[in-house]
Design a protein around this nucleic acid. Structure first.
Length: 859
RNA sequence: GCCCAGGUGGUGGAAUUGGUAGACACGCAGGUCUCAGAAGCCUGUGCCUCACAGCGUGCGGGUUCGAGUCCCGCCUUGGGCACCA
């Protein structure tokens, strides 16, 4: 079944075995539930027109080697692939060319698939999923409906990037330095109706869940920082000019309240206008207007110098009873906490800087317990500091003061201990065509009540409403049975020019008669089909690309199930990925969003566990030869197709894995690849002679030396360990060491060679299949059980003992491992170099680590 | 500014719990084979030195019989966050 080439002709060998694997369906995840399962997953690729790059190859080689190894170890392996195919690049291309996004997507997927097959990745292509397939996004919509039903989705006007010149809304990543990425046109913020998901309701669980995950620490830390849990207190300050109203602040340092000498509200704060006195009106209005016209980016970038305006009003510090001024300043963010702060300049850097600029008082209320004078601002807290000048709290530690003040303000009904998060709710809509449509119809209140009364729809406890053309509309979901809601055809896919999605001009699709019981719809231009039908307008937003990638790993367990996301049985057996490999660029968003959806599905009883990715690994970025990030403009891109044509996929895979630690960022080196290519040639020559027949040095009867067998067993052991621990580079180095030893042997037992081929096979699968067959082994090397190493073979009775004198290496000698210290010292003393160092000196101390080192301390 | 991870030959990198620094490979040099070349094979290759010795894991200190590894201070590269009260 092997090819007949005499040389290592990888261009012939590789396609041959790729066809063999596909024809024999060797990589399909099996139905046998008695076997232990292993689920390995790559991050969901976007099938771009540019095709596969080296980063993909690195990612997929890592998981492919793992998958092949685990199969050989007897696991039932699930190793799937699919396509995260909705999204902007395809839509932009469609707009430009007028071609249907679905057609473009299909072509891109075909290209990707072809390329994947040329690198020999052992995916189970029978489980391929595609987020743009209605049979798939039916369940994306279904999950979204569950979120909707549980009150986790709502609608809000939110500012988005709008480009007047392009007549369209842009994503954050399409805006660069305040200009559109395409064309460099100016962009502005414009409020548009958006769907928002209440991810903040899961903030605590998302944070706590991180603890048990086997993820890179840096990624866990990044997510924790993104969630940004912060414990503090809410306190309400009375307002002198607005009796009965209070200004609420959030502070993590309520213990410093005796030092709060002014307050600051964000320019967007609801009380900004009410608090402004007539004399200050012009100044405040001007300030608020300037702040509003700045983008978030400008506001933070220009943040070097603090700015602000006095409102003219005062609040009362509830601790001291003093009147303190209320300012407006944009260093306070409307979106965090309550949008207002109590400023304690003596103990907060930002407040200090502001107070210095505007000449506000800075009384110190925290001091080191030992009375050391300190410079302001002084931000220490903890056991070593005490409150000073703080009335009843003077002398307490900050922690004690917090307890006391929280209790006092709670009793006064003006405060409490509380927790804030940096995490914001998730803006979950795009004004775009190429995404999942929301299964929502906007209706008036009467129709909503009528439809709700039927009791069959997935409705939230509180209706979701919005105002369209001055009228309040209610969000009526499609019944689950009516899913999927497919995308209508849109001529040209052009932007509408109003900021709404291209769907908003497809009147027949948009304005409908709708049957809430069945989800059926007809154009509103037709006559009302029946009594229970209601007049509605479809939701025109579509879901962001994150939607489809939030749950795809579940679909792989049962990809064609028409009744559910996946069957409970499949979800129980396959569970979640045992290892998830992808780039660190998704450390926060994708991984956080998917965790959120998974927890909701867990609460719904759909999935049996509450975390989707127990083990995560990030492969490092492959840089160009110049050590810079690969990019077309730099001209430092190495193309996988070229490399495969020149060296073969096995060489490419092996070299990518040999380059360095998998997680490290490392530069490509086109000369270095020669090394692993030579290594594969060497393996070939050790197996076959010049005619392509088995090398005469291989025999079935030869007894290999203990040393060679120790090398073989050490290699089996190390390669297995290193694969388990994702240290492929040292596994390869061990295989090179073994082949170098093999090469020096005049005769080698054939089974030694075939055992070695088995451990090499996950890395260089095509060549190992070929050699396995040519050495007379039957079937696929992939089906042979992983060789066992014999621990007894690894032992030696001699080991090199290193001699040191005063910690310096002075020689070594092969000695029995169980040598006594006394004999070891004798052996050392016989060593001429050691003897020279001992000359005329006394041995003061002997450090003996058996089998390793003998250090003689002399003086 | 804050948090994190790195810094080892000409190059990529290796080094259980502190125990031979530089495995493996690239490159380079010499040799062998060849009419010649390619490929292969052999030898060498941290620095300094003819050699002995000495010096060497970003820099400066420290702990230790012994430090790439542990501790303190600094420099530097990369990543993340960035007025989050």
């Amino acid at each position: 079944m092997a090819t007949h080439c005499t040389d290592y002709d990888f261009l012939q060998i590789e396609p041959h075995w790729q066809t063999f694997w596909a024809d024999n369906r060797l990589f399909a995840a099996g139905p046998d539930r008695s076997k232990p399962k292993y689920y390995t997953l790559d991050m969901f690729p976007y099938p771009s027109g540019a095709g596969l790059h080296l980063g993909h190859c690195e990612n997929y080689a890592i998981t492919d080697i793992m998958a092949r190894y685990k199969r050989a170890r007897g696991f039932n392996v699930l190793y799937p692939i699919g396509w995260d195919a909705f999204g902007l690049p395809t839509e932009n291309y469609a707009v430009k060319t007028g071609r249907a996004p679905a057609d473009v997507t299909r072509e891109n997927i075909a290209t990707f698939t072809r390329q994947l097959k040329t690198i020999g990745v052992s995916y189970d292509f029978s489980r391929e999923v595609n987020t743009t397939d209605p049979a798939y996004f039916r369940w994306t919509q279904w999950i979204w409906l569950q979120l909707f039903k549980r009150g986790l989705a709502y609608v809000e006007d939110k500012p988005v990037w709008w480009c007047p010149a392009l007549g369209t809304v842009l994503a954050n990543e399409e805006v660069i330095d305040g200009k559109s990425e395409v064309g460099g046109h100016p962009v502005e913020r414009r409020p548009l109706r958006q769907w928002v998901l209440r991810i903040t309701a899961y903030a605590d669980r998302l944070l706590d869940g991180l603890q048990g995950l086997d993820w890179p620490d840096s990624t866990k830390r990044m997510q924790a920082a993104w969630i940004g849990r912060s414990e503090g207190s809410d306190v309400e300050f009375d307002l002198e000019s607005l009796p009965g109203q209070r200004l609420r602040v959030f502070t993590t340092r309520v213990d410093t309240i005796y030092g709060a000498t002014y307050m600051v509200i964000a320019p967007e704060h609801a009380l900004a206008e009410a608090l402004t006195t007539p004399e200050q009106c012009a100044a405040v209005q001007a300030y608020v207007k300037t702040a509003a016209s700045k983008s978030d980016l400008e506001r933070t970038e220009l943040a070097k110098e603090k700015t602000g305006v006095f409102t003219g009003s005062h609040a009362i510090n509830p601790a001291t009873g003093q009147r303190i001024p209320v300012w407006v300043a944009d260093y306070v963010l409307a979106s965090y906490g309550t949008g207002a702060i109590m400023a304690v300049p003596a103990h907060d850097e930002r407040d200090y800087e502001f107070a210095q600029k505007f000449n506000l008082p800075c009384p110190q209320v925290i001091a080191p317990a030992d009375g050391t004078p300190v410079e302001l601002p002084y931000c220490d807290k903890g056991e070593a500091v005490r409150l000073v000048n703080s009335g009843e709290c003077t002398g307490l530690t900050p922690a004690e003061a917090k307890t006391r003040l929280d209790a006092r303000f709670a009793a006064e009904q003006r405060g409490r201990s509380t927790v804030q998060f940096k995490l914001r709710d998730w803006l979950f809509s795009r004004q775009r065509y190429w995404g999942e449509p929301f299964p929502i119809v906007w209706v008036d209140e009467t129709d909503y009540r009528k439809a709700a009364a039927a009791g069959t729809l997935p409705l939230p406890a509180e209706p979701v409403t919005c105002v369209i053309d001055g009228q309040t509309r209610f969000a009526l979901p499609l019944p689950e049975s009516a899913l999927p809601l497919e995308l209508p055809d849109a001529p040209g896919y052009q932007p509408t020019g109003t900021g709404e999605s291209p769907l908003a001009i497809l009147t027949d699709w948009l304005e409908i008669w709708f049957d809430p019981a069945t989800g059926a719809a007809v154009s509103a231009t037709e006559s009302k089909p029946g009594d229970r039908w209601v007049r509605g307008r479809r939701e025109t937003n579509t879901m962001p690309q994150w939607a489809g990638s939030c749950w795809y790993y579940l679909r792989y367990t049962d990809p064609s199930n028409a009744e559910a996301v996946a069957s409970p049985e499949a979800l129980r057996y396959w569970g979640v990925p045992d290892i998830y490999v992808g780039g660190a660029e998704h450390a926060v968003l994708h991984l956080l969003y998917a965790r959120f959806w998974h927890k909701v599905l867990f609460d719904l009883g759909v999935v049996p566990t509450d975390e989707p990715f127990p083990k995560l690994f990030h492969q490092g970025i492959i840089l160009g030869e110049d050590g810079e990030k690969m990019s077309k403009s730099r001209g430092n891109v190495a193309n996988p197709d070229d490399i495969i044509n020149r060296y073969g996929a096995d060489t490419l895979r092996l070299y990518l894995m040999f380059l360095g630690p998998l997680e490290a960022m490392k530069p490509w080196n086109s000369r270095g690849i020669e090394g692993v290519h030579r290594f594969l040639h060497k393996v070939w020559r050790e197996c076959l002679d010049a005619e392509g027949k088995p090398n005469p040095k291989l025999s079935d009867h030869h007894t290999d030396s203990d040393e060679l067998l120790r090398g073989l067993h050490e290699t089996i052991r190390k390669v297995g360990d290193d694969i388990d621990n994702l240290r492929y580079n040292t596994a390869i180095s061990q295989m090179m060491i073994f082949v170098n030893a093999l090469q020096k042997e005049p005769q080698v037992n054939r089974s030694t060679m075939t055992s070695f081929l088995q451990v090499l096979a996950p890395f260089a699968p095509h060549m190992c299949e070929e050699l396995w067959a040519r050495l007379g082994r039957s079937g696929s090397v992939m089906l042979a059980p992983w060789p066992q190493y014999d621990a007894a073979r690894l032992q030696t009775n001699q080991a090199k003992l290193v001699f040191q004198v005063n910690g310096k290496h002075r020689g070594d000698q092969l000695l029995p491992v169980d040598i006594t210290q006394e004999d070891a010292v004798k052996a050392a003393a016989d060593n001429p170099k050691v003897a020279a160092q001992l000359e005329g000196k006394t041995i003061r101390r002997v450090i003996f680590v058996p089998g390793k080192i003998l250090n003689l301390v002399v003086g």
